[in-house]
Nucleic acid binder design. Structure first.
Lengths: 127, 127
DNA sequence: TTAATTATTGCGACTCTATTGCAATAATAC
DNA sequence: GTATTATTGCAATAGAGTCGCAATAATTAA
């Protein structure tokens, strides 16, 4: 299944680049202003995750957010053991840089890591 | 708004006690076998969280899970900075005991912590 | 440059999780 | 026992995400 370059794909990718934070589906839908279909955005983002271009965060609002991560570039040991911060006020989701490791009980095998802290970001806190 | 004791509330509470792990709404619905309405379960669980009887975990499947936590008993400094493990195979969600602390950027204020690691649990791994 | 192949798109329908309005019910307090 | 009002059940609703399918368009080979 070879990937193709399409305007939609490029649009989503550059929207993520410009955003510089994690974006939800509906944020992307807004940003792209109806130029790309809802379902298409979902599919493009899922492909990005499969291909290791972006990573998916499931925040504590139950929604998915997607971010390009520089760390993603090195393919080997592709893990995202870092936390994300979601502001309860402005709803922005961003990557925190601190890596975290958690000890699992014996016999447990980790496959995905999903850490989100929500609260008030700096901009919203100083209002 | 004083709380009342009802059969439904008691049923949900004891189901959580028996389970000894985190339960999702639908698991609870199963367990209670139609004796309690769907919406009622949702409301009871939300009340439990407000009252500090249970805590809510939003797992990486986007669903909510609820667990009674002994730690919840001490009211002061009511935080749940521990991880949860969700087995991708048997779909059980359990609390891990290790506490984790994450350094936030300056000016950021944490209110909720939500950490989930998914993978294969011991029972499912040894099949 | 054209033709063939097939990944991708758009649309609509659908599933699933969770919430809410409202009238009826029942736990508590007097 | 009666009054007050928290709680329940039901149905309707909202929102996130997925899927099937026919149409479209990016790639590849001719």
């Amino acid at each position: 299944m070879k990937r193709r370059n399409t305007p939609s794909k490029t649009a989503v990718l550059s929207a993520l680049e410009r955003a510089n934070t994690a974006l939800s589906h509906d944020k992307l839908l807004d940003t792209l202003a109806g130029s790309v279909d809802r379902a298409t955005i979902y599919r493009i983002l899922n492909r990005f995750c499969e291909d290791g271009i972006a990573h998916r965060i499931v925040a504590d609002d139950g929604k998915q957010y997607f971010a390009l991560c520089e760390d993603c570039s090195h393919q080997e040991e592709h893990s995202h053991n870092h936390f994300h911060f979601r502001c309860l006020q402005c709803d922005r989701v961003e990557c925190l840089t601190t890596e975290v490791s958690v000890n699992l009980p014996k016999g447990y095998l980790a496959e995905n890591f999903n850490g989100v802290i929500s609260g008030k970001c700096r901009a919203c806190g100083s209002l």
